[in-house]
Write a protein that binds this DNA or RNA. Structure first.
Length: 539
RNA sequence: GCGCUUGUAGCUCAACAGGAUAGAGCGUUAGCCUCCGGAGCUAAAGGCUGUGGGUUCGACUCCCACCAAGCGCGCCA
């Protein structure tokens, strides 16, 4: 049961009593002594309806058949109404999980609507950094969660493969190439000085000395793209589509969208440049889309890109951006709006930066000096799973402190190992039970009412919450709900394990407990899967 | 200077659309291995939610001011 279900029921009961009232909350109880669900319904009602008998309403609710069916006890305390679930209702989650298996928690709340998630989208001018890593982890997990919740998800990478930065990349590679062969060459001051480019230059065959920098640009793009794709694959992220800005420009869509805006009277000329009246749609100031020298600013193709994305039939666009693009949200939303689409169609999530630490020591990074930790380096050091877990544990818009030392540790300090240990431990118990002759039939047919320990009911209630945790993550587009949930579940399980034996001489009880462990195992499996974290066989 | 994000236990963070006595983990301290994996468990200590006002039955949450940190504020991407 979900809180909304209970609320709907309460609204129904109220209206049956002639009260049309919906302005109240139903939420999971903050404490055990407050039961399983609580509502502030009476605190709210009292504000507007002065002459209502609360006592009568309580009795009305208590007498309702559905309430009687689901709740052991419904009581009023400190103005709140607290609901205590019947154990039998709690046990029902076991059958539900055992029958749905890996689909437990799946829903169709997305109604098969199409969503396009665009993320990472790093310029192909260098290796992915940890900032991209966090976006990659977040985008991948969000995709999985939305797909699990009934959305049709497409993952797309927008490739800024033209413009000044790419030119510079070509020039830089050529200079590296010439220098390695002992020829005079200078890498431009604002060019790319990183080691990776030198490596690429070394691999190239002789005979390219006379080639234009544009030739090198193509080579560099090719090589770096391969590097990026390899890193992403190792990180467990595969995109459905790589969308090239160069091709977008070739297609004529940029001119087309500017013409559209012009027809709407949203374009004007000033100081030899062409401007978009974004202020009409809530931006701070108008933006240049074509410069004095007739070339486009980055905004022009971006508007075209967003228009094209929507025209491809997506109901929702989600962009993951770094905080350096935060100031850019207003203008692109203005553009989407100006093109006649609701700005709600575009949801932009700012994924905040990550600061790396090695214990107490902060690792300072500077892209300009070529001093940065790449995603590859991070994966090599702590492994993809630990990296993903830490990236996904915090809200996207919170700054993240990532301590490499902790992520490397194989002790209780490291939550990744704590969780994976719980998972492996559960798996091991299931294997042990199997060895002892407990099979799936015994598990499904077990007498669950033998699970009487408070901690057993506690685990079941937590398992029961899983679908709404997923749901919440999907509707709020906030991946960070999942990891703490799994961590909490792991903790409760470790504690249970310590205190009680699952498989022993008491066969009936062993079967019931094995069923419990199997359910927990399934939920943990799905949870880890949604985060893109691997489920180890052993440790 | 303006804008966005953030400020909660020693540290890293929770707290559902304003709800009950602000919760976890780590670290610290004191304990627990004949037993399905101790990479684990149990317990204790630890707080004027950055500061000062306001809104109300009720504020970590909303409003105003201030303080501190990070990031933006280009005819760069």
């Amino acid at each position: 049961m979900k809180a909304e279900e209970l609320k709907t029921k309460l609204v129904e009961i109220l209206s049956g009593a002639g009260l049309n009232y919906e302005n109240f909350n139903v939420f999971p109880s903050a404490k055990k002594e407050f039961g399983d669900f609580s509502t502030n319904i009476f605190l709210k009602i009292k504000q507007t309806e002065k002459n209502i008998s609360i006592k009568k309403l309580i009795i009305l609710i208590q007498k309702n058949a559905w309430m009687k069916e689901n709740f052991e006890k419904i009581e009023e305390k400190n103005g709140f109404l607290n609901f205590f679930l019947k154990d039998s209702i709690v046990y029902s989650v076991i059958n539900e999980i055992l029958s749905k298996k890996q689909d437990y928690g799946r829903s169709d709340s997305g109604n098969k609507k199409k969503v396009l998630i665009e993320f990472v989208s790093a310029n192909p001018t260098g290796p992915l950094t940890i900032a991209h890593g966090r976006q990659a982890a977040f985008g991948e997990a969000l995709s999985r969660i939305l797909a699990f919740s009934g959305w049709q998800v497409t993952k797309e990478y927008y490739l800024n493969d033209c413009g000044r930065q790419m030119e510079l990349l070509g020039i830089s590679l050529k200079s590296h190439y010439l220098k390695i062969r002992g020829m005079p060459a200078e890498i431009p001051q604002d060019g790319y000085h990183g080691e990776y480019l030198k490596e690429i230059a070394k691999k190239l065959p002789d005979g390219y000395e006379k080639k234009e920098s544009g030739f090198f640009e193509g080579l560099a793009k090719q090589e770096i793209m391969t590097m990026i794709k390899d890193d992403l694959r190792e990180f467990g992220v595969v995109f459905d589509r790589w969308f090239s800005e160069a091709e977008l420009r070739k297609s004529g869509r940029v001119e087309e969208v500017i013409r559209m805006l012009e027809e709407k009277g949203l374009i004007y000329e000033k100081d030899d440049a062409i401007w978009f009246k974004s202020t009409l749609y809530g931006d701070d100031k108008d933006r240049v889309i074509r410069k004095k020298d007739n070339s486009y600013t980055y905004l022009a193709p971006d508007i075209a890109y967003h228009q094209y994305k929507i025209n491809r039939g997506y109901d929702l666009l989600i962009n993951l951006w770094g905080p350096d693009h935060a100031g850019y949200v207003a203008r692109i939303k203005a553009a989407v709006n100006a093109l006649g689409f609701s700005p709600e169609k575009l949801q932009i999530i700012i994924v905040q930066l990550t600061t790396l630490y090695r214990g107490k020591e902060k690792i300072s990074m500077s892209t300009r000096k070529g001093q940065f930790i790449t995603l590859k380096q991070l994966m090599d050091e702590v492994g993809p799973d630990a990296a993903k877990f830490f990236f996904l544990f915090r809200k996207a818009d919170s700054h993240l402190d990532f301590d490499i030392e902790i992520a490397r540790k194989k002790t209780e300090e490291n939550p990744v190992y704590y969780i994976q240990y719980a998972y492996v431990r559960a798996k091991h118990i299931l294997e042990f039970a199997k060895e002892k002759g407990i099979d799936q039939k015994d598990i499904a047919g077990a007498d669950f009412s033998l699970l009487r320990e408070p901690i057993e009911l506690d685990i079941l209630k937590k398992l029961k919450k899983f679908p709404s945790i997923v749901q919440q993550a999907a509707t709020t587009v906030e991946v960070s709900k999942i990891a703490p949930y799994i961590l909490d579940l792991s903790g409760t399980f470790h504690s249970y394990y310590q205190k009680f034996r699952v498989v022993d001489e008491n066969l009936k009880k062993s079967c019931a407990r094995t069923a419990l462990v199997q359910c927990l195992f399934i939920v943990m499996h799905t949870g880890l899967e949604l985060l893109g974290i691997s489920q180890p066989e052993k440790m």
